[in-house]
Design a protein around this nucleic acid. Sequence first.
DNA 1: GAAGATTGTTGTTGACGACAACAATTGTCA
DNA 2: TGACAATTGTTGTCGTCAACAACAATCTTC
Lengths: 168, 168
Amino acid sequence: MTASAARADTRISPRKRAGNGAARRIDADEIGLDALVGHAGYAVRRFQIWIFQDFVKTLGDVDIRPTQYSVLTVIGANPGLSQMAVAKRLGIERARLVHLLDSLEQRKLVKRVKSKADRRSHALHLTTQGETALAKFKRLAAEHERHVEAKIGKENRERLLQILAGFT
Amino acid sequence: MTASAARADTRISPRKRAGNGAARRIDADEIGLDALVGHAGYAVRRFQIWIFQDFVKTLGDVDIRPTQYSVLTVIGANPGLSQMAVAKRLGIERARLVHLLDSLEQRKLVKRVKSKADRRSHALHLTTQGETALAKFKRLAAEHERHVEAKIGKENRERLLQILAGFT
DNA sequence: GAAGATTGTTGTTGACGACAACAATTGTCA
DNA sequence: TGACAATTGTTGTCGTCAACAACAATCTTC
């Protein structure tokens, strides 16, 4: 590929010409993205930021972040799992999970039970307090999910989940 | 919502029962996620991690990360933009953009030109070297995009871009 | 001309992914 | 059985990234 062939994508958009010294004020929404549009990664990143912020805001009162929620959900659905198993399932490094569990255990939502079968590992359980708390978190998470629906549309959300089902 | 109603989602899956002391070995792919499946944010996060890693790997030889690529693309398509304009357009904090541009300027891909019109701001331009480099980056990014197609399917990728078009 | 807003910069904080090293324990296999 | 390799939880470091806060220089507005 030659430089002139590349220049076809790189050429500045015709509707403006800022020049070297900057001329007039330019709004963010009139700046061309060119090749950036059409990149799945960029769209996904922006969407991920939006969805993340809405989750944090919606679960703000209970002070639960997405990763913490995923850990609680998996433990709640599979009591007795080891830290390794949870980390593998969620794609979290086991080193990172240590701090997450430290925090959740400090808040009395999770407890680490020394495993009889394998004395290296811990069996993870929700506390009673953790179970009732998780129930509340799930209600708030469902509310957040409705925000997503309102943003991209009900059918689009379901289609999205279907497309990305292989990554869960 | 009562606690018993919540327990319906929280109940452990019937096909295993780890108990409190851990019993047999459990593979990661047989751990139930329950409510986590059906959360758009979780699926998007996992997908975003995958796509990010593939981008970094595919553009590994030229040592360009997704954010750097987006900055170069926007500057290439809109020469003369201020740092504020680029930051706003890409949803990056202007404080963060400073370091990104420091790195790109050090690699002689971008130059900050003192603006005549507004002496507070810098007009951003690609260097000649930066333009030819960006052309190569775009070829590699296109290759990455083909990886995405191979992963989720051509039509699913296009559908995804369509659904998320509002966030770009 | 004074007051307020904007731009680029520096710094801090915290979440997060990646990696390396370590002790305790378990598994393997010669 | 005993030596060696693998696993588990932990600690630590490093770099990326979002979110703030503060600041000097400059522009805008009245």
